[in-house]
């Protein structure tokens, strides 16, 4: 699992670390983890204002292009422990692949797994698989194409 974390993490410079704050709400922050190859942990710096608690946490890496495509993501579950001051360690416990993290084969596996998950969701409720109104969606796509402005650009 550590090898997977190593391999995938190097493609991302600022993953999102999420813990739980003192009120019991999730709290997320971009961070710059350093890999500790001997301990198999990630070392992160977290500002004091977060009020983040030691305990279960996760690390998300994701990205998309300007047109919300070329999607890729993965998540790592783990535990967060303070090591002094603003320094913490995140110990990975489980790698969870997301979309686009293993090429076309990964995409196919992802879609088939979610198709099966949807079937289970319906079966447990005694529901038939709903039919999607594809023509209605195609009509909306055509309207969206007609009304699309060029993609926004940041000001100079």
């Amino acid at each position: 699992m550590w090898a997977e974390v190593q391999r995938h993490l190097q493609e991302f410079s600022s993953p999102v670390l999420t813990g739980v704050d003192g009120d019991g709400y999730p709290i997320s922050i971009r961070c710059a983890p350093e890999l500790d190859e001997t301990q198999h942990v990630l070392r992160v710096s977290l500002p004091g204002w977060t009020g983040i608690r030691p305990g279960p946490a996760s690390l998300l890496c994701h990205g998309h292009n300007q047109l919300l495509w070329d999607l890729h993501s993965f998540m790592v579950r783990g535990t967060l422990t303070p090591t002094g001051g603003e320094s913490w360690q995140f110990r990975p416990t489980r790698f969870v692949p997301g979309i686009g993290s293993d090429g076309l084969a990964g995409m196919v596996r992802f879609a088939l797994a979610k198709r099966r998950a949807a079937r289970r969701y319906l079966q447990r409720r005694g529901l038939a698989r709903p039919r999607i109104d594809w023509m209605q969606l195609k009509a909306l796509q055509a309207r969206a194409r007609q009304s699309s402005a060029p993609p926004p650009q940041p000001p100079e």
Partner: peptide, 18 residues
């Protein structure tokens, strides 16, 4: 275009996805 959305799993682990 996206946000990082977090929920709490049954064991209390915060789970985040775009």
């Amino acid at each position: 275009r996206t946000c990082e959305f977090s929920t709490l799993a049954a064991d209390g682990t915060p789970i985040t996805w775009p």
